[in-house]
Design a binder for these strands. Structure first.
Lengths: 145, 145
DNA sequence: CCAAAATATTGATTTTGTCAAAATTTTTAT
DNA sequence: ATAAAAATTTTGACAAAATCAATATTTTGG
């Protein structure tokens, strides 16, 4: 995975084992949480710490190398797919996240009325039930309180 | 404010002072945080607790009477404007939130590809700098780290 | 008005994440 | 290659936001 080294050099970021591990983990499993990334990285670098994961994720986000997704009431997830204007579907039950492309043609960065704001990002999250959970619910009957 | 009493009756929710206070506070100041709502309600009901505010907000959200907005890295905000498909502009500097209507005609509930999800909500947050903060930044020069 | 149900109060607890300082690693410049 | 400087990592304390749980109080429905 030499592309990560090149990418980091480009941003003048140190090339450390943990940092590369984070990027590899995210490439392998997009929309991972800190816990998930930590588990994967720790497998290779047993001495690593959760704080190092947090540090790196924050640094990478600041540099625009990765993107953070933070659904209501859930820990943050991260992805390496940046730069294109894609959005996310999230399942209310199992919390799975799936990428979805932007509206055809519709300019996502333009709200109807921007009230004078200088808008630089449109964050779009589609909430619903994923196919798998739709099946489970049907089979098991309603589990809602 | 009798509409709140009617609304609560409709949902078979108890008509308590704190609950009515929360709704009034939210009507008066949309996009309020728990702290802000607590401060307003406490003004009228000095014995109230923050937990009561949390309880009520959660209950009201569950019943679809109010909506929760939770921008990354910030405490939740709430609003009584529900049922219409409107979205939000949020200022990266002062965190002010402003309502904005949906794209003209574009069906917000329909992502390009829904991957089989049963989508029931499209949550759209436009990030940027509000007019007031644009002015401040220009006058004071860049304050960024 | 009274019993049952819902809500409020209080205080502990959890979760997610940041802060800070010393130790280590990486980079830069010889 | 090497030493100083800069960046990162490690460790542990800490903080904010929100939930949980138990008891007290209020609200509702008969």
């Amino acid at each position: 995975m030499n592309k990560h080294r090149t990418l980091l050099k480009h941003h003048k970021l140190s090339l450390t084992a943990v940092r590369l591990g984070v990027l590899e983990a995210l490439d392998a499993q997009p929309h991972s949480s800190v816990e998930e990334i930590f588990a994967v990285v720790k497998d290779k670098i047993v001495t690593t710490s959760k704080q190092a994961i947090y540090n790196n994720l924050n640094t990478l986000v600041k540099h625009g190398i990765i993107r953070e997704i933070k659904p209501k009431g859930e820990p943050s997830r991260y992805e390496t797919r940046v730069g294109d204007n894609h959005h996310h579907l999230i399942c209310r039950e199992c919390h799975m996240i799936v990428d979805t492309d932007c509206f055809s043609g519709a300019p996502c960065l333009e709200p109807m009325d921007d009230h004078g704001f200088n808008v630089d990002e449109a964050e779009i999250l589609f909430w619903g039930i994923c196919p798998s959970c739709q099946n489970n619910t049907n089979k098991e009957g309603s589990k809602d309180e």
